[in-house]
């Protein structure tokens, strides 16, 4: 399928245009942005990012591991130290806390990779519509459509302040 690339200067029109396109049944869309903008987060997909679940599971796993490990190890070879109880909960809270953060943080990284589909592409190869302009200060809205819809999409992109529209062959 051919793809049309609209080039923009601001995130607002990109988001608006993407919503219009989705409303008209064009679902094979992609947005390229030079920075994070909240308006683009919901342009293609309204649902909140699933990264949150990764963090939550990582954190819960961490706190469980922290307490379970310390308590089990203290009873596996019980040694009285400083007259403190074997399961010294106040001190094990520190280990539990650190592991919550450690596991939660690593799970967040993993979540970013999985949800954001990274690493992406073959080594050194980007999407056919990707351009270094998108890592400068411009935005790209890419629409894959059938040949007969090209005119309509082109008009739509220009309606929303696209400063250039170009066609990418498959």
């Amino acid at each position: 399928m051919p793809a049309l690339v609209g080039i923009y200067d601001a995130p607002g029109p990109v988001a608006e245009c993407a919503r219009r396109l989705r409303g008209r049944g064009f679902t094979r869309l992609e947005i390229y942005a030079p920075a994070a903008f909240p308006e683009l987060d919901t342009a293609l997909d309204e649902k909140p990012s699933k990264v949150r679940i990764w963090t939550l599971i990582g954190g819960l796993l961490g706190v469980t591991t922290g307490y379970a490990m310390t308590i089990w190890m203290s009873y596996d070879w019980p040694v009285t130290i400083g007259g403190k109880p074997f399961a010294s909960i106040p001190t094990y809270t520190i280990i539990g806390f650190e592991l919550t953060i450690l596991f939660g943080g690593l799970a967040t990284l993993l979540g970013l990779l999985v949800v954001g589909r990274l690493p992406y592409g073959r080594f050194g190869k980007n999407d056919r519509a990707y351009s270094a302009r998108f890592s400068a200060e411009e935005f790209g809205l890419v629409v894959e459509c059938r040949e007969r819809d090209v005119q309509e999409v082109d008009a739509l992109l220009r309606d929303h302040q696209a400063k250039e529209v170009s066609l990418v062959e498959p």
Binding site: G83, K84, P85, A87, S88, I89, P90
Partner: peptide, 9 residues
């Protein structure tokens, strides 16, 4: 309970 001798089950 929260002092020295405790934190036992």
């Amino acid at each position: 309970e929260f002092l020295m001798s405790t934190w036992y089950w």
